[in-house]
Simulated scan of single mutants.
Amino acid sequence: MRRPLLSTLAAAVVLVAGCAGAPEPSTIAATAVAPLLPGAEAITSAPAAEGTGSCDTEATLAPTTQPRPGAMPAGSAMAAIIANGRLRVGVDQNTYMFGFRNPSTGRLEGFDIDLAREIARDLFGDPDKIELRSVTAADRIPLLQEKKVDMIVRTFSATCERRREVDFSSVYYRAAQRIAAPRGAGIGNGAGLAGKRVCVAKGTTAAAPLFTLPTPPTVLGVTNWTDCLVALQQGTVDAISGDEPILAGLVAQDRNLEVVGDPIGAGAYAVGVPRGSDELVRFVNGVLDRARTDGTWQRIYAQHLSTLGPSQGPPVPRYVG
């Protein structure tokens, strides 16, 4: 009964012996290359920076007497929203702390999300009368122009260029733009980006300060800020530059990163609405005024942004009419 096994072993010995004198296969050297993320592209010219241009980027319309929830003036943009049964808001789902999808609950959460719910609360008397639509930074203005959303609450800063296309509320949050890099990478400030590859989100103003550095880095634009984190982990870029709370959210997801250097720019977030929506701008500013004075702003800061340090308080609005 053992002969078949012995025959098999013998054949294996012969096969190995026969291969012993054969030349070893040659080794082909290869270098692993991480492909660019879908939608990633080089940014070769600076967008308009925040605070530049001939306009007052923070000027906005003062609120008037705030209507009661559910009782909006006939013919107003707010009445149209009420008739639609829900507030359609463009938000982010990829920016930790401001707008992200909680993997445990599947719900969108963050500072911007809660602020949008406060607007729905003052419209309907119910913060859940809201439809949150995940949008990219590059799609914010087109969606407002096409009126596929009623407003954008997505770390959206007013610039003179953007103000020619949409309207803005008062500023509800200020942020400094900084740099995030791997610990020990030798990047400590803007000067350290010389000869490096830096990631930003397309459709934002984050690339602008990078082009003002003495030796501008190579800039890669991606769809979402989390794509920057992936690009950095894959070695496609050397650093990320964006607003400090956005970078802090990325660091919270990868402790090998750190935020470094002095600010190289600044951001001032406001709610974006379709151009010509004066009544809606005044209404949203009324909601923001309430949130500033009744403790709502401080509450949602403490809930979502406390890791950034003590709150400096909500920005003071700049009303011009």
Rank of each mutant, 00 (worst) to 15 (best):
L132D: 00
Y319D: 11
D254P: 03
A291C: 15
L87N: 00
A83W: 15
V230L: 13
V230K: 12
T57D: 15
P35L: 15
L36S: 01
R133F: 09
R68W: 15
L6Q: 07
A120V: 05
S54N: 05
T8G: 00
L5F: 11
S170Y: 10
L36N: 02
E50H: 07
L220K: 04
L220Q: 06
F156T: 04
L132C: 06
K196Q: 03
G195K: 11
P245A: 09
P23G: 05
L87S: 01
A32W: 13
P63D: 06
R183H: 08
P142S: 01
G309V: 02
P127I: 03
D112K: 01
L213Y: 11
P274Q: 04
F156I: 06
A20D: 08
D294Q: 06
G184L: 08
D112C: 03
V14I: 14
R3E: 03
L280G: 04
A194D: 10
P317H: 09
A270G: 00
A207P: 12
Y269M: 10
G21E: 06
Y172F: 13
D112T: 03
E41A: 15
S45K: 08
A29G: 07
E24G: 03
D56A: 12
Q233W: 08
N189V: 03
R88T: 09
L229H: 11
L305S: 07
P69M: 04
G90F: 08
A116G: 05
E131Y: 10
W225V: 07
D278I: 09
N256L: 14
L280H: 03
N102V: 05
T204G: 04
A270V: 04
A71Q: 13
I113S: 02
M151V: 05
R318L: 12
T307L: 13
C19I: 10
L132S: 05
R88M: 14
E258R: 09
L9I: 01
E131V: 08
Q234H: 07
L232N: 00
A120Y: 09
E244S: 07
R133I: 15
Q253R: 13
A175D: 12
R290N: 14
L257I: 10
L115T: 06
P127G: 00
E109F: 12
A10K: 03
P263C: 05
G75W: 12
G106H: 10
S134T: 08
W297Y: 15
I187Q: 02
L61T: 03
T95C: 08
Y172E: 01
L15F: 15
Q145R: 06
